[in-house]
Amino acid sequence: MTAVLVIVGVTLVALIIAAALFYIITRYFEARYDRTYMTHDERGFKRALAGKVVLWDYEEAVVKGPTAPHIEFVALDPATGGRRTVKLMDPRTGAINLRPQYCAPLPFEAVTADSHKVIVEARVQFSLNRDLLKHVYEIQEFSLALDTRIQSAFRSEIGKRKDEELRGALHDVERGVIEQLRRAEEEGDEAGEPGMALGVRFHTSAFTYTQPDEFAAPAMAGAIVGPGATPEQQVAARAFARAQGVLALRPQQIDQLADVFKDRDPASTAAILSLMDMQTRQNIAEALAASGQLVVLTAQELGLFGAAAQRDAVSRSRAQLGPNGAAPGA
């Protein structure tokens, strides 16, 4: 009887040890400096793991699977030059990447202090903050929130400067963007503070920008017709061109012209003014001709097309002047 009890006791102990080992193995996680795991329970987010951890609380579980938050961002695709989505959480294991990454939002518009539009291509280096992963857990669309915060910071910094100042202040803008992003994290990392932290460390930023062709865009939108355009389409295009006026420039375009003349030598300025004068005269002539106030005749219509017509015109001129080069009766 005693032997049976011993066997049963040993078996129970072995089962308990095996169950404990199985529990430890399945609930053991190793977080490194570049990788961690989030855990939650029925009350929500619990903690971000650091080091070697066994989850002894049976209610605590690693965040993973289809119900886990989508922690991803938009990055450049080196193969195509376009954009791709990069996941920072492995949905199968729940491992979260803490390494620095480069977010590259799609090109977006910003407006300078003097109302010039610029198209911005931005790059921001960031990494997830292990200590603030609670905010990452609570954000439903992390990628959208990150892109919005980055775009807002760039628009704010660009909007403080005029377009001619922006060219020489690229580094100041990049530094100001990082300061804004870091300040937003600090002001929203505790309950009751304004805003909400994203749970991100921002490291560096860089951007380039281009200016849309505001001079050609309005006219190109309505005045261009194809070679096979119908007469009605051609009439509509001319009407649209007349409606633009002889010098239909918006204040932003006039400001851009001022930038063109800035710091130029007199010869360059005179050449640009000469070209603008000729273009303005052409615009005036076309506007008057289209309205019927001016009749424009070609050389062919005047009979001055070709060498023969020119010789006949010279002969008639000589006949009118007489043999001595003077007009008859003079």
Rank of each mutant, 00 (worst) to 15 (best):
G195Q: 15
A197N: 06
L198C: 05
L198P: 00
V200I: 09
V200R: 02
R201V: 05
F202K: 03
H203E: 07
S205K: 00
S205Q: 00
A206F: 03
T208M: 03
T210D: 08
T210V: 05
T210G: 13
Q211W: 01
D213T: 04
E214Y: 05
E214I: 04
E214V: 09
F215G: 05
A216K: 10
A216P: 03
A216L: 06
A216W: 07
A216D: 06
A216E: 10
A217R: 15
A217E: 08
A217Q: 11
A217G: 02
A217L: 07
P218G: 04
G222P: 00
G222H: 08
V225G: 09
G228T: 06
A229P: 13
T230S: 13
P231K: 01
P231G: 03
Q233H: 05
Q233F: 00
Q233M: 04
Q234P: 10
V235L: 14
V235D: 14
A236L: 05
A237P: 11
A239Q: 13
A241L: 12
A243K: 14
A243W: 05
Q244W: 08
Q244F: 11
Q244K: 10
V246R: 07
L247C: 08
L249R: 06
P251W: 02
P251V: 03
P251T: 11
P251A: 09
Q252D: 12
I254W: 14
I254F: 11
I254R: 15
D255S: 14
Q256L: 12
L257G: 10
D259I: 08
V260P: 08
K262I: 04
D263Y: 13
S268Y: 15
T269V: 15
A270T: 12
A270D: 15
A271M: 13
A271W: 10
I272G: 09
I272T: 14
I272N: 11
L273H: 13
S274N: 14
S274V: 07
L275M: 13
D277E: 12
D277Y: 14
M278H: 10
Q279L: 14
Q279I: 12
T280R: 15
T280S: 09
Q282K: 13
N283D: 06
A285H: 09
A289L: 01
A290L: 02
A290K: 01
S291A: 14
G292K: 06
Q293R: 15
L294E: 10
V296A: 09
L297W: 04
L297M: 08
L297C: 07
E301S: 04
L302S: 01
G303M: 00
L304E: 01
F305G: 07
F305Q: 09
G306I: 01
A308W: 05
A308N: 12
A308S: 12
Q310K: 12
R311Y: 02
A313P: 01
S315M: 13
